[in-house]
Write a protein that binds this DNA or RNA. Structure first.
Lengths: 345, 345
DNA sequence: CTACTTTCCGAAAACGTTTTAGCGACGTGG
DNA sequence: CCACGTCGCTAAAACGTTTTCGGAAAGTAG
């Protein structure tokens, strides 16, 4: 095994293709072809290059590859709330749809601050991301970033207000319908809906789905109307007390969020109602820490955010390949059954 | 205003320095110096280049800059749980300590899967990150990534098991001490500690801090011992029922997490105890959705994770500049006072 | 022996930037 | 008029890849 002992490589820096090539006694071009399984390389040579690369623990410089390929193998993830419950699952779904091998995720948290967003946007574009996923903190439409960014953009969870853009969101109407459908299947007939901030479009969508499904049974909302206020446990408690006054026959509550549902449960228990025997409760979001810790554990609607992230990544990948889409795509929610609902004896 | 109308630039691609230069009628080198505020450029020329760059909306290709500077301006964030409550604040703190202008964050979620971690590690190194922040899902020590990665590494929240590495963590002992100190200042003397999984080092650290502070007052734990089990609301409820049997005089509970604290509150209320008048409750984590929604809102110990992220970023920046550190640095927790504790009338 | 493939390999250009070295022009002091 | 700086600018190298093109060597057919 005679080796020429060419200068191994500069101290402190990772080995380059040149190092591999000279160790294997071939040109850089040949080394490149060998490692990328291109043809026009002899089997023996290929093997020698491989060994050299392994010995040096060579890993190609993605920046250099990006230069010549004119794509960085990177997507930007622009989010409005990093601590929020909603961006994380999306992010996670996106991250593994891309498979980590070909694509990495560059994260930027804009915190709902417009100028910070512009800042981050410039930084991401400067890094020549191949595409952008924008995930909002609220399910409501948000201003478009515009079409002239030079890279494709997909909006997740919060759609863009420009129909020209591509957005993927959870189907809130179907989610509301699904919740009430489940309660009806449990034999409930006196169903109230306690939900959050009336300025959220999602509140109304969920309520609409709920009311539609009720109507199909010839029913209307217990309490007479949707109870809007805020996304808090406190409101869940307060609304429930009101309801118990107005509707002594109440046998189910659809809560617009798991937080509200927790409040509803609390107030029901306090009033001596048994859940789910007397009153069934269903939440929305499937926020694990809330839904599994409650007494009893909470049946809830899961907006399948991770799936949303996956789809967003897929759509973005397509757009990067040139097959751009547009419009808002809605994806179904999923019923997660725990113990706060059950058939009426 | 005579312009030469040189070929504007290749369609579809972002403008390059060459485009700016030819628009301003200077060489690439001059354009570079002008935009980077280097000397050896005339004032008028500099102005012309600036205008051209603005007109073209030029932003320098960070990949190319990275090639020549031998640093990518990117750090890798390797986390074990992306949905988890703990990595997010750290991430956020890190993200803004870096100022987004000079440094971007490349995200990788390993999900506690060793081979996935190796995968992501290779991807990050291939992208030539300038450094790595590793944030764990649990506060306990984790295996070191090793010293020979070629880039500096800082471990946050979960320290490395190799003292040669640099780790920044929350001071759990001081946190436990702080919790009990607050209860004592509220005049409580019969204080129990309900906490989670006994296999977590953090459980024991918090308990140790608590017991130490009690000892300074000549007190011991109500119930006789630390009550370990799991990080769940259900355990909080169960433990509280046990406690009320054993210690009718109980006037305070230090819960090892906010989830447990929620369970404690529930059980106390159910037993007819008034909080905080009869029994004070303090949690740990300051997990907003749990702590603010409870009845009453929960006083708790905030491990200041965002600060941890900031410090981690700072330490990493130092290490990148060549001033590497090592060892485990602990940072204090913060008391967040809400309504579940109050002075004994 | 010539002409022609086929097979394997290397030289060189290209990607977009920063930096080094050098080159004219111009002014200044002798 | 000459030596010498200084100033403003440009040419070219370098960073680490991939790819194109051409060339050498060897084999095959005439």
């Amino acid at each position: 095994m005679s080796v020429d002992e060419v200068a191994p490589h500069r101290r402190g820096r990772p080995p380059t293709l040149k190092d591999v090539a000279s160790m294997a006694g071939v040109s850089i071009a040949t080394a490149s072809k060998a490692l990328n399984n291109r043809q026009h390389v002899g089997a023996a040579t290929r093997q020698r290059v491989q060994s050299a690369a392994d010995a040096l623990n060579f890993s190609p410089n993605a920046l250099a590859q990006g230069m010549v390929a004119q794509r960085s193998g990177t997507v930007g993830l622009l989010t409005s709330d990093l601590v929020g419950r909603f961006s994380m699952p999306v992010l996670r779904g996106a991250e593994d749809a891309f498979g980590s091998e070909k694509m990495s995720v560059l994260l930027a948290d804009a915190r709902d601050d417009h100028i910070r967003q512009q800042h981050h946007l410039r930084a991401l574009l400067s890094r020549r991301v191949d595409g952008l996923i924008v995930v909002g903190a609220q399910p409501d439409p948000r201003p478009s970033l515009g079409q002239d960014l030079g890279v494709p953009v997909v909006y997740a969870y919060a759609p863009s207000d420009d129909p020209q853009d591509m957005s993927v969101v959870a189907d809130d109407v179907a989610g509301g319908r699904l919740a009430v459908d489940h309660l009806i299947r449990c034999g409930r007939r006196t169903i109230a809906h306690v939900t959050g901030d009336p300025t959220y479009g999602a509140s109304h969508d969920r309520a609409r789905g709920a009311v539609e499904r009720l109507a199909e049974e010839g029913l209307t909302l217990a309490g007479g109307e949707v109870m809007y206020d805020s996304w808090s446990e406190a409101w869940g408690r307060g609304a429930t007390r009101l309801l118990l006054d107005r509707e002594p026959a109440l046998d189910a509550v659809f809560a617009g969020s798991d937080q509200i549902a927790r409040g509803v449960l609390d107030a029901l228990l306090e009033a001596g109602k048994r859940v789910p025997e007397e009153v069934a409760v269903i939440g929305f979001d499937n926020w694990e820490v809330l839904a599994t810790g409650s007494r009893p554990p909470l049946t809830t609607i899961d907006p399948a955010l991770e799936n949303l992230g996956r789809v967003a990544a897929l759509r973005l990948a397509s757009a990067i390949e040139g097959r751009a889409g547009h419009g808002v795509e809605s994806y179904p929610c999923r019923l997660v059954t725990r113990s706060s609902t059950a058939p009426l004896h």
